[in-house]
Computed example of a mutant assay.
Amino acid sequence: MGDSSAVPAAEQALGILSYMARQRGPVTAAAIANALAVPRSTTYHLLAVLIRQGFVTHLSERRRYGLGVSALELGTGYARQEPLAQLGRPLVETLARTAGANAHLAVMHGTDVLYIVEERPRQAPRLVSGLGVRLPAHLTASGRAMLSAMPTEQFWALYPDREMLVERTGRGPRTVAELRDWLRTARARGYATEVSEITQGLVSVGLPVLDHLGWPTAAIALTFPEADGRALDEVADEIRPASQELSRRIGGVPARLVHRDVTSRP
């Protein structure tokens, strides 16, 4: 049998993660200890373990703790499974049919996006962003849509440095500073775009799907040939009902109700 003494520690660690997930932003160790009735020394010990495992990040300048990349991956791991795909597939199918373009549903996986639903009408071009494919989030409309709606601390946990970002076709942001500019534009428009950054000649428009805290759980996007000459605002209007309906189905809020600036330092 396992060591039963480890059970309370496991429960307390899960309690910390659950508490942090319900907050709007990073919290102090004292707030965690008080909320969970856990000794402060124990709280610091558990936080240190969670930091080493990537589930928590320490914002030393603010003396606060926020959720780390591993917590995000755990959440998207759930999202990648059937509940979100089952809820979103009918919406994506309808969108692809009515828009006459490739439609897909994607979730974040670290700094990548993972496509969990894709619908391709007849005659539509085959995409590299097929079911189960992962692509750099900063190069895709789906990824940018989610990044633009992401809590500030989560964005900086994903992109802590100003290192160069990968590119595929010679287009798109090459540094975190440039990415921040792209996200400002996406937030101002209410949707994100990508033009020939994944595949030459193809354009994508994406909108986020938000949970009950207003955090991005997924994104829905349409992809079509640049030669179609579609107005991007009109494409976004086609996607918006599907993204808002999926947000509603998961108990979330419409993207228009969220006002967040991921481009400033926490």
Score class of each variant (00 low, 15 high):
Val56Asn: 05
Ala255Tyr: 04
Gln244Ile: 00
Val7Ser: 11
Arg248Leu: 06
Ile16Thr: 09
Ala106Lys: 00
Pro254Met: 12
Ala33Met: 05
Leu47Ala: 08
Val107Asp: 09
Ala31Ser: 14
Gln12Gly: 08
Ala10Thr: 12
Leu47His: 01
Ala13His: 07
Arg97Val: 12
Gly252Ser: 08
Arg180Asn: 01
Leu246Arg: 02
Gln86Phe: 09
Gln81Pro: 04
Gln81Asp: 12
Leu131Pro: 07
Thr152Phe: 00
Leu50Cys: 06
Ser142Phe: 02
Val107Gln: 12
Trp215Phe: 11
Ala103Gly: 10
His212Ser: 15
Ala221Trp: 00
Glu73Met: 14
Arg171Gln: 13
Val113Trp: 04
Leu47Arg: 03
Gly201Val: 01
Glu178His: 02
Ala6Asp: 09
Arg189His: 15
Tyr44Cys: 05
Thr76Cys: 14
Glu119Arg: 14
Leu257Val: 06
Ser204Met: 02
Ser18Pro: 02
Pro90Asn: 04
Leu114Tyr: 06
Thr57Gln: 15
Pro160Ala: 11
Val166Gln: 15
Gly170Asp: 09
Phe55Val: 02
Pro8Ile: 10
Ala231Trp: 07
Leu50Met: 05
Gln86Ala: 12
Arg168Ala: 07
Arg240Met: 02
His259Ser: 15
Ala124Cys: 12
Thr169Asp: 04
Gly170Tyr: 13
Val253Phe: 00
Arg174Lys: 14
His259Trp: 00
Leu127Lys: 05
Leu158Trp: 00
Gly206His: 04
Ser129Lys: 00
Ser41Trp: 00
Leu183Gln: 09
Val195Asp: 13
Thr140Ile: 03
Ile198Thr: 11
Ala35Cys: 04
His109Gly: 10
Ser129Pro: 00
Ile32Ala: 04
Pro151Gly: 06
Thr217Met: 07
Glu226Asn: 03
Ala137Val: 06
Leu179Asp: 05
Arg174Ile: 06
Gly201Asp: 11
Asp261Asn: 15
Leu131Asp: 05
Val38His: 00
Gly190Arg: 05
Val258Ile: 15
Met1Tyr: 10
Glu167Tyr: 07
Met164Gly: 12
His109Asn: 15
Ala96Cys: 09
Ala186Ser: 15
Ala219Cys: 02
Leu14Met: 07
Pro136Met: 08
Glu118Gly: 14
Tyr159Arg: 03
